[in-house]
C-alpha cells in the first residue's frame, strides 16, 4: 500500500510530469530563467524575517501556479506536507528558548516553562521560510520537465558530475520505487490476513534489503546499457533552449521583486504582530 502510493507519486513527479507538460505561462518560460528566478527567491527567503513578506511571496507563487493551470491541491500538498512534518517539529524548541515578552507560563516538576511572543514569531518565521522556499522549488519542478531542468543546469555550467548524477538519480529513484512495489506486492500476495501496524512496519525491512540487492543488479544493467551507447561521462540533451523577450522580462521582474522585498524587510522595524 505504502509503496503503491509512493509509486503513484513518483510516476507522476518523475515520469508523467503532467503539469510540466501543459503549455501555459510558467511552463513556457525558459528553464534557465526559472532556475535562476527560483534560486534568487530562495536566497531572498533566507534573508527575510517579516511574516507578511513571506505571505506575499507565497501568494505570488500560488497565483503563478494557478495561472499555469497547476493543480493547487497538489501544489500546496507537496510543499506544505513536508513543512508540517519536519519544520514544525524542529521549530517547537524556539517557542521556549527565545527570550522576550511572555505569552504563557507554566510550571512542570518545579521548572518554569515560558512561551514568548518572540518565540512564536521565530517559530512561525522558520516554518514559513521553509514552506516558501519549498513552494518556489515546487513551482519550478511542477512547471518544468526534469529533462529541461537537467538541460538548463548543463547550460548554466553546473558541474558536469552534478548534472549527470541529477539526471541518473531521477531514473534510479523511480526504478527503486518500482522494485519496492513489486516486492511488496509479492509479499502481500502471500499474506492471508490483514496486517496490523507493527506487522506492516516489519514488512518494510525485507523489502528494503531486497531493494538494495536488486538495485545493485539494476544499476549494473543500466550502466552497461549506457556504456553500450557510448556514455562518456558527459551530458547532452535534445532540448534546444532559447531565451526570448518574455523570459528576460520575467527574470528581471523576479530579481527586482525579490531584491525589493529584501530591502523592504530590512527597512521594516522588527515588531511582534500578534
Amino acid at each position: 500500500m505504502l509503496f503503491s502510493k509512493l509509486y503513484e507519486f513518483f510516476t507522476d513527479v518523475f515520469v508523467l510530469e503532467e503539469s510540466a507538460r501543459k503549455n501555459f505561462f510558467i511552463q513556457r518560460l525558459d528553464p534557465r530563467v526559472k532556475i535562476i528566478a527560483a534560486f534568487t527567491g530562495i536566497i531572498c527567503v533566507s534573508l527575510i524575517r517579516n511574516l507578511l513578506i513571506f505571505m506575499v511571496i507565497l501568494s505570488a507563487a500560488l497565483l503563478s501556479a494557478a495561472a499555469s493551470r497547476i493543480s493547487l491541491k497538489d501544489f500546496i500538498f507537496r510543499s506544505l506536507g513536508f513543512t508540517v512534518l519536519f519544520t514544525t517539529v524542529i521549530s517547537i524548541p524556539l517557542l521556549f528558548t527565545t527570550p522576550g515578552r511572555v505569552l504563557a507560563e507554566t510550571s512542570i516538576i518545579g521548572l518554569t516553562v515560558k512561551v514568548t511572543w518572540d518565540g512564536v514569531y521565530n517559530a512561525a518565521a522558520l516554518v514559513l521560510r521553509v514552506w516558501t522556499a519549498l513552494t518556489l522549488l515546487n513551482l519550478l519542478v511542477m512547471s518544468t520537465s526534469f529533462d529541461k531542468i537537467t538541460a538548463a543546469l548543463s547550460a548554466l555550467r553546473a558541474p558536469r558530475l552534478f548534472t549527470v548524477i541529477f539526471d541518473l538519480t531521477l531514473k534510479y529513484i523511480f526504478i527503486m520505487v518500482q522494485e519496492a512495489m513489486r516486492v511488496s506486492r509479492a509479499q502481500e500476495a502471500r499474506r492471508l490476513w490483514k496486517p496490523g501496524f507493527i506487522e506492516r512496519v516489519k514488512s518494510v525491512i525485507p523489502v528494503a534489503s531486497n531493494i538494495l540487492l536488486r538495485s545493485h543488479v539494476k544499476a549494473n544493467n543500466i550502466y552497461n546499457a549506457m556504456l553500450a551507447r557510448g556514455f562518456n561521462g558527459g551530458y547532452r540533451s535534445l532540448q534546444s533552449l532559447k531565451i526570448r523577450g518574455g523570459d528576460l522580462l520575467y527574470l528581471l521582474f523576479s530579481i527586482g521583486l525579490f531584491s525589493f522585498l529584501v530591502l523592504l524587510d530590512k527597512s521594516l522595524t522588527f515588531t511582534v504582530i500578534f
Binding site: F14, V15, E17, S145, F146, D147, K171, K218, N221, I222, A225, M226, R229, G230, F231, N232, G234, R236, S237, L238
Partner: peptide, 18 residues
C-alpha cells in the same frame, strides 16, 4: 533496463548525443 529517458525521441537520441 535500457530505456534511460522519459520521452521517446530523447531516448533514441541518447547514443547520438554522446
Amino acid at each position: 533496463d535500457q530505456i534511460l529517458k522519459n520521452i521517446v525521441e530523447e531516448e533514441v537520441a541518447y547514443g547520438l548525443l554522446n
